[in-house]
Simulated scan of single mutants.
Amino acid sequence: MSVNFLGVMPAITTKFNADLSIDHDFVREHVQWLVQHGGTAIIPCGSLGEGATLSFDEKIALIKTCVAAVDVPVIPGIAATSTADAVQLAQAAHAAGARGLMVLPPYLYVSDWREMKAHMSAVISATPLPCILYNNPVAYKTDFLPEQIAELATEHVNLAAVKESSTDVRRISWIRALLGDRLAIGVGVDDVLVEGVAAGAQFWIAGLVNAFPAESVRLYDLARAGRHDEAFALYRWFLPLLRMDTVPKFVQLIKLVQAKVGMGSEIVRAPRLLLSGAERATAEAEIATALATLPTLQNLAGTE
């Protein structure tokens, strides 16, 4: 089963009802809206989707909702506190219709390469689905070095891509130097998209796309086309929002942006709480400025 690892792949937020149950009706509407605006895959159950607060059954239900709603690949995040649970989740996601998996290191436990390799290998081997290795040492404290990624790619034919979220764009060139075209490389941090594409990244697993899909797709397209001046003009407008993807309260911030554009709500599950005080005021001011200077869709839709 193949996935074309190109384009903008939204890592979706999970909208909750007032009672903190998942709002599946909104999820359906949201993912369809994202695909209509150019999203090439849907990534549920990730960090931005508050995957750590979702039960096993909730994750599978969410995957099924996404699969039924869109024709593009659904590639859920696979993370758990134990290897056995991650393997079970991977297999259940496959049965639910996922066309790929985004594999994370285990929650809570940070160790050496021998143990992390065993964990990742078990999850990647659990299904025949193409897998994205998610490297985010900033958030998860486990850093998969390019040589280690190459080792996994040599041993697992279905390791198809890497989501590089180290924030060090040099990693993209390093992985390419070791592996050539063996793995597709994706940008996983919103505010290095243009730099990452210039280094050779082929796809973007994006966060602010949840609120601004047309702008996100246009930015990616301009960067891929090498239209640097146009890309930077859009990037300059977008950067204050894109930087919201790189801080501990990125979930609350991105959900606040969604609420301000009328595509979602701020509700989060504890231990997260709604933004308040000066932190909220700063975010609201940045969002207001972005909305007041929003580029027109006509300008975003120029020809290649």
Rank of each mutant, 00 (worst) to 15 (best):
A301C: 13
T83A: 15
T13Q: 13
A90Y: 10
A206N: 08
L219D: 13
H24S: 15
K255V: 00
I132L: 12
V251G: 02
K249D: 14
T14I: 12
W174Y: 12
L219M: 11
Q148W: 14
L129C: 15
I205A: 02
G277L: 01
L274E: 07
V35H: 06
D191I: 02
A122V: 13
E304T: 09
V261S: 01
A161D: 06
N158H: 02
P130D: 05
R224H: 09
A80W: 02
T296V: 08
A161L: 00
Q32R: 12
P146R: 02
L129R: 03
E50P: 07
N135T: 04
A118P: 03
K64C: 09
I185Y: 07
I267H: 02
S111T: 15
G100S: 14
G186E: 03
G207H: 06
S55D: 04
P146K: 06
V192I: 11
L219A: 09
R28F: 00
A150G: 08
F250N: 15
E215I: 03
G38A: 13
R236F: 05
A92E: 11
I254A: 05
Q88Y: 03
L104I: 07
V70T: 08
L20K: 06
V138Q: 07
Q91K: 05
K260H: 12
K141N: 14
G100V: 03
A93H: 01
T289C: 12
F232W: 13
G46P: 02
I124P: 04
L219R: 04
A160S: 08
N158A: 03
I205R: 01
Q88M: 07
G100D: 09
E195Y: 00
L133D: 06
T289Q: 12
E50Y: 01
G180D: 08
L108Y: 12
L193K: 05
Y109D: 04
A223C: 10
E286I: 01
V87I: 15
A84V: 11
R99D: 01
D143M: 07
L89C: 12
A283Y: 12
V110D: 07
V197T: 05
D143E: 11
G46R: 04
T53F: 05
A270E: 13
K141L: 13
F144K: 05
D143Q: 03
G302H: 10
Y107Q: 09
R176V: 04
R114L: 13
K117P: 08
R171D: 14
A288R: 05
N135A: 01
D168L: 01
T81E: 15
G196Y: 00
W113H: 14
A177C: 08
I205L: 03
I175N: 06
S216D: 14
T14H: 14
V138P: 07
T65N: 05
K59M: 15
L242F: 11
G262I: 00
A126H: 10
V169C: 14
D181I: 02
Y220I: 07
E215F: 05
A278F: 11
A199T: 06
A153H: 02
S82Q: 10
S173V: 15
A177K: 09
L193R: 04
A126S: 11
A52G: 15
L101K: 02
F203N: 03
R99L: 05
Y134Q: 01
D143S: 07
A93N: 01
A288P: 04
L275I: 08
K255F: 00
M244C: 12
T154I: 03
A68N: 15
E151W: 00
G38R: 07
A18L: 05
